[in-house]
Structures are given as C-alpha cells and as structure tokens.
Amino acid sequence: MTTTPTTMTVRERGNMWSYRSLIWNFAQRDLKARFKGTALGWLWSLVVPIATLVIYSVVFSTIMRMKPPDFGNGATGNVAVWLWAGLTAWSMCANSLNSSIGALLGAGPLLKKIYFPPYAPVLGSVIALLIQSMIELGIYLVVLTAFGNVSWTWLLVPFWLVIFAVFLSSISMALAVLNVHFRDLAHIIGVAIQLLFYCSPIIYPMTLIAGKSKMGIPADKLISANPLTQFIVIFRDLTYGLTPGSPLAWLYITGWTLAVAWVARRVYRARALDLSEEL
C-alpha cells in the first residue's frame, strides 16, 4: 500500500463537511453575540414573533373578521394558530436573509487575515437563525397538540425543513457575496422582503385570491408562482390541514431549491474566492 502525501494548494483543505466545526462556531458566535448583554437573553427571540402574532390575531379576528379554515381534525379553525403557521415559515425566510446578507462583511476582518471558506460565516448565520426558529416551530407544534390536531403528516416536516434550509442558505450565500460588491444590496433586499410578505399567503389564504386578476394580470397565478408561497402552503398543509400537500407543490419547491443552489454556486465560484481583496 502506498500512501501519497496530502499535497494540495493552501486553500483546498477540505470540503464543507470538514469545516463543520467552523460553521458551527460561526453559528454559535452569532447566537451568543445576538443575545449577549440583553436581560431576557433567549426570550427575545420569542418576543418579536409573539408580539406580531398578537397584533395580527387582534386585527384579523376582531377587525377584519377573518374566518380561518378548519383544523385538519375537523375542529373549527383558530385565527391565531392559523396565522402562526404562516408567520413561522415567513420569519425563517425573512430573518435568515436579513441577517446573513451581512455575514461576509461582518467576517471581513477575519477573512483578510486568515483563510477559511467564505461560506462558513454565511451558513453559520443561517444555521443560527434556523435554531432560533425551532423555538417558534416548537411552540406552534405544542399549541397544535393542545388542540388535538396531530397526524402522521408531521413526519414530513423535517423533509420540508431540509429543502427550505437549502433554499434559504443558497439565496443567503449569493446575496452575502453580492453584498460585498454592492454594499447597498442590503437596503434593496429589505424592501424586497416587505414586498414578498404581501406576495405570499401569510395573512390571507390562497382561497381568498382564487380567480382574481387585475389589469389582465392573474394575481392568484402570480402568487402561486412565488416559491415561498408553495413553501408556506405545504407547511400549513402538513401541520394545520394535516394533509401531505400536493406532489406538484413538493416538486415545485424542490425544483426551485435546486435552481437557486446552482445559481448560488455560480455566484460563489465567480465572486467569493477573491473576497479578501474587496473587503
């Protein structure tokens, strides 16, 4: 048996797996830095979503008199729980984009002095956010259990979560890299995220817009085409409606995720490897 010495250029030290402890360290750094010096610490990650939920519940159940769909187990629907489903998925998306877009700029001082793959801080930041979101998700599932709305379809949630995580990290990666080259991208994305909120069925059900169009533009088709719509619809189907979701929707989000991952890879290859000179 011959052992060949591990000859490699300085940068090719390993794949993503071999950098897992670094990615995890960045995630930890994000989590610690976020809650350090705050009296409530981790509780803060719950204050914002709960406050949002309370506001929406009041607005939609008492002012707008929205009637939520029934639970999957046949019980009468609950506005707060129904909204919580959409908001959980939504906040995963919005928060991870918002925070990871600056991940590379934040790691700039490090990247200029020591080499590590630039994806590490971005993935770390996405992971930190997903962990935070797990609390929201957990509370949501506990509430559903209290309503007796549990089914085998919950077992599909992890699959959904993995696809969503890859989808979000790919977008985050591309945006974080581009944000180094175009420092105002973060502002644009901030506006885009707001727009996206209303273009996704978070505070309204898809049934509300079925068949509607304006100036010949079919609103329902447009909103269905939004990949985030399908992510939210599937998530709500799995947890609230207790149906496995339409295979077409699953296919749709998988297709989008692969496409976005491919684009992110292209952007990374083209732009991320000389970042230390741009920072």
Binding site: M8, T9, V10, K112, Y115, S276, E277
Partner: peptide, 18 residues
C-alpha cells in the same frame, strides 16, 4: 505571505502546502 496563508489567491501559478 498572504498567498502562503491562502488569504489571497495567486493570479497565476500555485502555492502548495504540505
């Protein structure tokens, strides 16, 4: 040194570390 440390990439040529 930055090339040796891998912080920058060489424009051409290669830096190999064992």
């Amino acid at each position: 040194l930055k090339l040796l440390a891998g912080v920058h990439r060489p424009t051409s040529g290669s830096v190999i570390a064992n």
